[in-house]
Amino acid sequence: GDWICPDKKCGNVNFARRTSCNRCG
């Protein structure tokens, strides 16, 4: 399913099809 970026500065939910965090950094 969808997953949350492990980066504390991010924390946005990513679609399951993504293999990396979206809009992190």
Rank of each mutant, 00 (worst) to 15 (best):
I4M: 08
C21W: 00
S20K: 12
P6V: 05
I4K: 10
G11S: 12
N14R: 01
G1Q: 09
R17Q: 15
R17D: 10
K9E: 09
R23M: 08
C21F: 00
N22Q: 15
C21R: 01
P6T: 13
G25I: 01
A16L: 08
R18N: 07
C24P: 02
S20D: 10
G25S: 07
G1S: 09
G1T: 14
T19G: 07
G11T: 06
G25R: 04
C21I: 00
W3D: 02
S20G: 06
G1R: 05
W3G: 02
K8R: 07
W3L: 06
D2F: 00
R18H: 12
V13N: 09
I4E: 10
W3M: 09
N12T: 11
S20T: 14
D7V: 05
G25V: 03
K9T: 12
I4L: 10
C24V: 01
N22E: 15
V13R: 09
A16D: 12
A16R: 07
I4T: 10
T19A: 05
W3T: 06
R23C: 11
G25L: 05
R23L: 13
D7I: 03
S20I: 08
C5M: 02
K8D: 10
K8P: 08
K8C: 04
S20F: 08
G1H: 01
K8S: 10
R17G: 14
R18W: 13
D7Y: 08
R17I: 12
V13I: 11
G11D: 02
C24T: 03
S20C: 11
C5K: 00
A16W: 13
C5N: 01
C21S: 01
C10K: 03
D2E: 13
D2S: 06
S20A: 11
R23K: 15
R18L: 14
G11Q: 13
C24A: 04
G1I: 11
C24R: 00
K8N: 11
G1C: 07
G25P: 04
K9Y: 15
S20M: 11
C24M: 02
R17L: 10
G25C: 07
S20E: 12
C24E: 05
R18V: 15
F15L: 11
P6A: 15
D2H: 01
R17P: 15
W3S: 08
F15M: 14
P6Y: 12
K9S: 10
D2G: 05
K9V: 07
N22M: 15
G11E: 03
K9D: 15
G1P: 06
N22K: 10
G25T: 07
V13E: 07
K8L: 06
C5W: 00
R17C: 07
N22P: 08
V13Y: 10
T19F: 08
W3I: 07
F15G: 14
N22L: 13
W3H: 09
G11C: 06
G1E: 13
I4H: 15
G1A: 09
G25Y: 02
W3Q: 08
N12D: 09
C21M: 01
R18G: 13
N12C: 04
C21V: 01
W3E: 04
R17H: 15
V13M: 14
G11H: 05
C10T: 03
A16V: 08
R23W: 06
D2A: 03
D2P: 00
C10Q: 04
D7L: 06
F15C: 11
I4N: 05
T19D: 13
G11V: 03
R23N: 13
D2V: 00
N22A: 14
V13Q: 09
C21P: 00
C5G: 01
F15I: 15
